[in-house]
Design a protein around this nucleic acid. Structure first.
Length: 556
RNA sequence: GCCCCCGUAGCUCAGCUGGAUAGAGCGACGGCCUUCUAAGCCGUGGGUCGCAGGUUCGAGUCCUGCCGGGGGCGCCA
């Protein structure tokens, strides 16, 4: 029974005071209307401080069901809740169309902080109601050149999403799939061979300077044939790509070779053909083998094997989908560039033809990053060779700022990255604001002895009972929002929400730091409480940054 | 022609799948360092949420149609 809400999944109530609160509101609402499922109430922060610590729409949701006006129901819900919460609920108001504004006690806030500290590293984790085995395949740029800057968005997105899903409670594999067979690879081999022999690259070939480098670095390149050169070039380029990604903080469980799908007898490609044929989803026409993807919503059928016997890339994609499913992957996430959106229907159809549920294959579309140099657009064509590589971008802007920038915007929006600005103003990037807050806390708490810190953080530490400062209450509420934010980011596949959260949390800490003296505060119980609050903020900032793959430095 | 994404402050963008008087950063203007890090803080100015309808107690959010920007539609990837 889902007693809580439509606000994503409910994180473990024991680690989330907010989830607990939602639970209580839901029960109060259910009690108000008698029998039936508790409604999926919302409990959220109102915009204005005088509207309470939290507000709920429970009564408005019940109104249609109960056939009574929301404000009337609100009174009953609120008194039910008051009974359940005792002194934690200081007072409540019924406002506007039927909101119940909740004013929570200082004791509730202090208890919330204890919960955060008790959860430790696990704070905000484990909210997935049904943990799944998830595979995220991302970047997967063909090793026909260095990674371009735009790949930095895919890499940051896929990696951060993986981290968030793991924190949320899923089991996650990260894979990079690369083509090392087929036409583009042959073309690469021919391009290298041409350069090795001092010739012009063939029509449509790869013209970048790196192709000459490859020709030089491969020993005896002039005397090797194109196939051999392609193989050597791919190995070199893949190693470089991996190096760039590692530098960027992106670690894969596997770099998956397309070629392995064609190997063995029967190969995965052949097995995949058998599976879809057994389902009656294939047919021969004009000498080619087709997959009837139109049965599953695609707008035309797709070729698996051409009339000349060669299989298509799509056939390999089909085989890879099968291979992943047979390994026990329950959810496949495949973020791709928005220019690949035409693939979504056929991939989902392929997955369905293999017997899968199309909902278990998701392909978030990632919009482009345009590199702008002042007012000019920097082009990024690999074949023409006039691109900015990810490595060059990292040299200019740095890993943390690049990741933060790439993740800051929702993935379905195009972004312009002004290199001039990034270079000049990188110290003013918001990422430093968040990191600065973290470093500041480390520095501040570093003034204390370890035993003082431990005493303040101890589960039974005396934090006194003085009225809390507004900034203290706000900071606690910012901390309590974290589990919901993780859940939201995970379920909407939206790492950018963690970026926004990290900024908001850093801002709340800074306001607290401005208003409340920590080290040396009197009496000692207040100092203890503020130490604990600062440490909880530090840990949560560090966790949020970790989910983004951004460092949390001790000093700046 | 069909399909996908977007249109919110001067600029770049959030807006928690329908809630109360729409927010942040940057830029502009004016202030703040003998006091736990000034990569910081405080204040001011800035909006017909592209346009027009619709759904309802309530729409930046959902539906329809336009307008504008970006991208995609092959036995290429």
């Amino acid at each position: 029974m889902n007693v809580t809400s439509s606000q994503a999944q409910t994180p473990n109530a024991e680690h989330s005071p907010l989830a607990l609160l939602r639970d209580l509101v839901g029960r109060s609402a259910a009690a108000t209307v008698g029998e039936g499922e508790p409604p999926a109430v919302r409990v959220e922060r109102p915009k204005r401080a005088d509207q309470g610590d939290y507000a709920t729409n429970a009564a408005m949701l019940l109104a249609p069901r109960a056939g009574r006006p929301p404000r009337e129901l609100a009174g009953t819900v609120a008194s039910e809740l008051a009974e359940l919460m005792g002194g934690d609920l200081e007072r409540h108001e019924i406002a506007g169309p039927g909101f119940i504004n909740l004013f929570l006690s200082d004791g509730w806030h202090r208890g919330g902080l204890r919960t955060v500290l008790a959860a430790g590293e696990r704070y905000g984790s484990g909210g997935a109601s049904s943990p799944r085995r998830v595979l995220v395949e991302f970047v997967s740029a063909n090793p026909t050149g260095p990674l371009v800057a735009a790949s930095g968005r895919h890499a940051a997105y896929g990696d951060s999403l993986s981290r968030i899903l793991e924190h949320h409670g899923h089991t996650v594999w990260r894979e990079y799939y690369f083509n090392d067979a087929g036409g583009q690879i042959r073309l690469l081999g021919e391009s290298v061979r041409a350069r090795a022999c001092g010739e012009e690259v063939p029509e449509g070939g790869y013209q970048g300077e790196y192709v000459r480098d490859l020709a030089e670095r491969i020993e005896g390149s002039a005397s090797l044939d194109a196939d051999e050169l392609a193989g050597r070039a791919i190995a070199l380029l893949l190693r470089e790509i991996e190096g760039t990604l590692e530098r960027y903080g992106v670690h894969y469980d596997a770099y998956f070779s397309e070629r392995t799908l064609h190997a063995g007898s029967p190969s995965y490609v052949e097995r995949a053909f058998e599976v879809v044929a057994a389902g009656g989803h294939t047919y021969e026409s004009d000498g080619a083998l087709w997959l009837r993807t139109t049965s599953f919503g695609d707008d035309k059928d797709r070729v698996l094997r051409r009339s000349d016997g060669r299989v298509t890339y799509f056939a390999a994609d089909l085989a890879y989908l099968l291979q992943k499913r047979e390994r026990g992957v329950e959810l496949q996430l495949l973020p791709v560039g928005s220019d690949h959106h035409g693939y979504v229907a056929r991939m989902k159809a392929a997955f369905a033809a293999l017997g899968g549920d199309p909902d278990d294959l998701e392909m978030p579309l990632i919009q482009f990053v345009h590199l702008v140099e002042g007012s000019e657009r920097a082009a990024m064509s690999k074949r023409r060779g006039d691109f900015v590589t990810l490595d060059e971008l990292l040299d200019e802007v740095g890993v943390d700022a690049t990741r933060f920038f790439m993740l800051q915007r929702s993935h379905d929006r195009t972004v312009d990255l002004d290199l001039e600005l990034a270079r000049r103003e990188s110290p003013e990037n918001p990422v430093y604001y968040v990191q600065y807050a973290h470093a500041r806390i480390v520095s501040m708490l570093g003034r204390l002895g370890p035993e003082r810190l431990a005493a303040a953080l101890a589960p039974g530490a005396d934090w006194g009972s003085d009225p809390l400062d507004a900034a203290e209450r706000e900071l606690i509420k910012a901390l309590l929002a974290f589990p919901d934010e993780v859940a939201e980011a995970a379920e909407r596949r939206a790492p950018h929400r963690i970026v926004a959260y990290s900024l908001a949390l850093a801002q709340q800490f800074t306001a607290f730091y401005r208003d409340c003296r920590v080290v040396g505060a009197t009496p000692a119980e207040v100092e203890s409480f503020r130490i604990a609050l600062s440490e909880a903020a530090r840990r949560t900032i560090a966790t949020a940054l970790r989910l983004l793959g951004v460092g949390a430095p001790d000093s700046m």
